[in-house]
Computed example of a mutant assay.
Amino acid sequence: MKERRKKNLIEARTLQIWNVIYDVIEVVVSLIAGITANSSALIGWGLDSTIEVVSAGTLGWRLHGEIKGIDEEKVKRRQKITLNVIAVSFTLICIFISYDSITKLINQETANWSTIGLIILLVSLVVNPILIYFKRKYGKKLESPALMADAKDTFICLYQTVVVLIGLILVNWLGWWWADPVAALLIVPYAAKEGYEAYNKAKNINYNTAQND
């Protein structure tokens, strides 16, 4: 049983490493595209990918600790830190997206077309469902709320991808200047909900109880 769990831990950590590598690429491309096109939705999407890098990296650190055999209390402490990082990250992205989108709605700023933005969005539509599937798979195998929360984070990124893509098309094909900031604002309720859930899970972790991660 211990060997099987260790194997799952190693595979889950490897998944997080690949997640970080892809998200770094996603961050660089989407932020360049978003800033160039003055797109709130693309910038917000890129910043959420930044949060995914932090989340996946912190979760990888927590998994690495258990692989190395640190005691249960330290494992739970790392799990709590991971969930708190996810919660704080969601909060920050909600604040930024709200401010940026509302400002652009007030100023009636229009986003420009971005071919590179379109490409990274389409790539994300393929990559993120794969990441979600394997995060959930190992989250269930390891009974890990941190991995399940991270899977939800990636699902939100997938949802964002669809919303941002629709916004990009509406702005440039139909001339709906408001579609871009509105698409960004649609991200906020989901991000806020998942951040709150991650915070509650972290709060309920008790170092003194003998439970699985």
Rank of each mutant, 00 (worst) to 15 (best):
R4L: 12
K6M: 14
N8H: 10
N8T: 00
A12S: 13
R13Q: 06
T14D: 15
W18K: 13
V28L: 04
V29A: 09
S30H: 01
S30T: 15
A33K: 02
I35L: 06
I35V: 14
A37V: 05
N38Y: 08
L42W: 10
G46I: 15
D48E: 12
S49W: 00
A56G: 04
T58L: 10
L59Q: 03
G60K: 08
I67H: 02
D71P: 05
K76N: 01
R77K: 09
K80R: 07
L83A: 11
I86M: 15
F96V: 15
F96A: 10
F96M: 12
S101W: 11
I102G: 04
N107C: 07
E109Y: 04
T110Q: 14
A111I: 03
N112Y: 02
L118Q: 14
I120Y: 01
L121Y: 04
L121K: 06
L125C: 14
I130T: 15
I130R: 05
K135W: 02
K135T: 10
K141G: 10
E143Y: 04
L147I: 05
F155S: 01
C157Y: 11
Q160T: 14
T161H: 03
V164P: 01
V164E: 05
L165R: 08
L168M: 15
L170P: 01
N172C: 11
N172M: 09
G175W: 09
L185K: 06
Y190S: 02
A192N: 01
G195D: 07
Y196N: 13
N200G: 01
N204C: 06
I205K: 15
D213T: 00
